[in-house]
Design a protein around this nucleic acid. Structure first.
Length: 377
DNA sequence: TTTCGACCTCTTAA
DNA sequence: ATTAAGAGGTCGA
């Protein structure tokens, strides 16, 4: 089946939004990039995005079950909400640069100037809870892989585009069954399999956890960050760090700074933090407060940029570090095809591995394309 | 009440 | 090629 793809445009500079940074900097893990087009599935459609210097271009493909009669408008509303477009990023960057200049008077370049267009997303709360349960003791690459296999295994089929099948993110009722844990372990979730199944079942268990529901989770958006924190750490697999990530990335608590050992080091090295240098509850809260006081109402956003500036992955495909162009040369390309059987279906996975030289250094960029070739009863 | 080891798997660096 | 450390932690003893 072919779908007519209609692209629409929205004036938006790359300084306000850099898709390739925002979608790869460790806050969202479910976007695909196929032929320079970013794609993502919501509960009722596939969203497609690309951009040039001055415009964001968007298109959508509805699920066959969708009855939406005003697709262009609802897609634009989703985009405006998801990317927090009411927040003017350039102003914040300016403000943060001043803070950095004050703390590091000697440094020539700020981390903010070198990494423009990184803004906080406003993601779906349930999805964000699961994403960040997966994030513990883990890396961006593996988290992305886990998210995709979770949707593929349990999510409702939305539609197909360019040979790729898209699935919605599975709701709690689909993940609450006890047998989910074993299956997730098979899929490589490790000890997080138990956390996800248990947390999902908490949302389904009205007897023991009447206060934990999808409605009450969404209502946290209108409550304080302290209330959100208290609620979230009750969930299985959610500690203080993960709770703060969730709070920041989907519950509108823009000033919350999730702290890890890495952030502690940055706070000590660059931002004059004087306090405990090993991580514990006291240190956690002190660092969090210190950075919040320093960077203000959008401290969590500032921290995302600092984290992104340190992510080596993020430099792939973005041709700038300290104002110097990075050379990309395709050195080699490998295509691997393998069959995978799941319950009731056989699928072909095509793995394309592109080996590049980035400024002389060998890097492997992997794009996963899943193609369904056959379905059996 | 705080500290510390175990925990799954995968990627990266040596 | 092979190995070891580390990954934006959490849990329970």
């Amino acid at each position: 089946m072919t779908v007519d793809l209609v692209w629409r445009s929205l004036p938006l500079s790359t300084k306000e939004l850099s898709l390739s940074r925002v979608l790869r900097c460790g806050q969202a893990f479910r976007w695909n990039n196929v032929n320079s087009v970013w794609s993502f599935s919501t509960k009722d459609r596939i969203i497609l995005l690309k951009q040039d210097d001055q415009n964001l271009h968007y298109a959508y493909i509805l699920a066959e079950s969708s009855k939406d009669r005003n697709g262009p408008e609802s897609t634009l509303l989703f985009i405006a909400d998801y990317f927090n477009l009411d927040v003017k990023l350039a102003d914040l960057y300016e403000q943060w640069s001043q803070v950095e200049k004050k703390c590091r008077p000697g440094s020539k370049t700020t981390s903010f100037a070198g990494f423009p267009g990184i803004r906080m997303l406003r993601q779906d709360p349930w999805e964000t809870v699961v994403l960040f349960i997966c994030s513990s003791n883990n890396n961006v690459k593996r988290i992305s892989k886990m998210c995709h296999s979770l949707c593929h295994e349990y999510g409702t089929f939305i539609n197909e585009h360019d040979g790729v099948n898209y699935y919605a993110f599975p709701q709690p009722e689909l993940l609450a069954k006890p047998e989910v844990e074993d299956r997730l372990r098979e899929l490589g979730f490790g000890y997080r399999a138990k956390y996800i199944q248990r947390t999902a079942s908490m949302f389904m268990d009205n007897e023991n956890y009447p206060h934990i529901t999808l409605d009450s989770l969404w209502e946290l958006r209108s409550k304080t960050s302290e209330e959100a924190h208290e609620y979230l750490i009750e969930l299985c697999g959610v500690g203080p760090k993960v709770a703060d990530c969730i709070s920041l990335m989907c519950l509108d608590n823009h000033d919350v700074v999730p702290v890890d050992t890495h952030v502690l080091q940055i706070a000590v090295r660059d931002y004059k933090f004087k306090g405990p240098k090993t991580m514990n509850k006291i240190a956690y809260n002190q660092v969090k407060q210190h950075l919040r006081d320093l960077f203000g109402e959008y401290a969590g956003w500032a921290q995302l940029v600092m984290f992104a500036a340190d992510l080596s992955d993020l430099n792939n495909g973005i041709n700038q570090v300290d104002g110097q162009a990075i050379k990309h040369e395709v050195a080699d390309m490998k295509v691997e095809v393998k069959q995978e059987s799941y319950v009731g279906k056989v699928e072909q996975v095509v793995k394309v591995e592109q080996v590049e030289r980035v400024s002389g250094k060998r890097k492997i960029k992997t794009d996963m394309v899943v193609k369904k070739i056959k379905t059996e009863a």
